[in-house]
């Protein structure tokens, strides 16, 4: 068995009565890119800060390359964090920023100079060595932060929502760059984010967190296609939720009659049906689908290459995406249909 780059066993952190990190166990193999994904307050950043040594755990153990390190202060751990703000040293030049960690590790001067050059080249900032952080754009700052962390060649890189302060196009660009760098350099990393797109695009594995605990950890494909529970399902990808009461006369839960037919046997009672909006068909397309619901078009949103139809059936609200020209207008009553494998039922 090879030694994991990072190994968390039953890690726990409480603040008074609040449990921030609740018995989290997680291993990151060498060269693996693991994402902690969850809403704010789910404990993903707290977990990362415990690994980095910015906070002390109450129980459990953390090992890096097999060595127990949870008793060490941050400056003695072989980790390097890329913060959301970049956290560059404002009074040091780009080159001095990148060299800082090497200086602290007592790497000799010529080696330091070489590595600064090498990593600035890797993040494509070779000409910026003598600039100060205030003279850089947001994306450039984040790339310097990346170079600064990569330069010390840590056992594990810790990303603390590094892209969330950037605007969308830059975010997409940097996300591709980080993925590329990972393919190239094969570093081990933990990446914290609340953006599921980032998680899906970059990760070897994704850990979905809630209330300080890991709900599911798996490859992005499996997380998407085989969510272990309702929380994971709703957190990953867009979905419509239909809270209904099943029975001979299906209602919207509050008693409003709906015209719903489902394939197969479903026990009567309250249930929540989830369907991805991209899998909903309507109009003539819906006619031969096994599951159908009659709904009225409330309004239509134009999203560029498709239209999003906001629909209502009694108290239920849902939306469906449809490519091509708008085929229905507000007020139309349409049939909405979907395949059974595109629906999940939670009770």
């Amino acid at each position: 068995m090879t030694i994991a780059a990072l190994d968390l066993q039953n890690v726990r952190r409480t603040y008074g009565r609040v449990v921030a990190v609740d018995n989290v166990s997680l291993t990151v193999a060498k060269g693996e890119f693991v994402t902690l994904l969850g809403p704010s307050g789910s404990g993903k950043t707290s977990t990362l800060r415990l690994v980095g040594g910015f906070d002390q755990l109450n129980g459990g153990s953390i090992r890096i390359n097999g060595e127990r390190i949870d008793h060490l202060p941050a400056y003695q751990r072989d980790t390097a964090t890329i913060f959301q703000s970049g956290a560059l040293f404002p009074h040091k030049t780009v080159a001095e920023n990148v060299a800082f960690g090497l200086r602290m590790r007592k790497v000799d001067a010529s080696e330091t100079a070489d590595r600064v050059k090498q990593y600035l080249g890797i993040v494509r900032l070779s000409g910026f060595a003598d600039r100060f952080p205030a003279q850089l754009s947001g994306g450039q700052k984040q790339r310097v932060a990346l170079a600064r962390s990569l330069a010390v060649r840590p056992a594990i890189l810790l990303f603390d929502e590094p892209l969330s302060a950037l605007d969308l196009s830059l975010r997409l660009q940097l996300r591709a760059e980080i993925k590329n760098l990972h393919d190239q350099l094969q570093f081990s990393a933990i990446y914290v984010t609340h953006d599921q797109g980032e998680a899906m695009a970059m990760s070897s594995r994704v850990a979905v967190m809630r209330n300080g605990a890991i709900e599911q950890i798996d490859t992005p494909e499996n997380i998407f296609h085989q969510p272990i529970n309702e929380f994971v399902y709703t957190f990953i990808g867009e979905s419509c939720c239909l809270a209904v009461r099943l029975g001979p006369q299906p209602t919207d839960g509050a008693g409003g009659r709906i015209d719903l037919s489902l394939q197969g046997d479903h026990a009567p009672g309250d249930a929540r049906l989830y369907i991805r909006p991209s899998r909903l068909r309507f109009g003539p397309d819906a006619a031969d689908l096994p599951n159908r619901l009659k709904a009225r078009v409330e309004f239509v949103e134009f999203l560029g290459d498709m239209n999003r139809y906001h629909l209502r059936a009694a108290g239920l609200e849902l939306f469906a995406d449809h490519a091509g020209a708008a085929v229905h207008r507000a007020g139309d009553v349409v049939d909405v249909g979907w395949q059974s494998q595109d629906m999940r039922v939670f009770r």
Partner: peptide, 18 residues
């Protein structure tokens, strides 16, 4: 025993921080 030793070491870090 290992756990106990590390708990002690961790407590020392916290004490120093205090």
């Amino acid at each position: 025993g290992e756990d106990r030793a590390f708990t002690v070491a961790r407590a020392a870090v916290i004490r120093r921080k205090r």
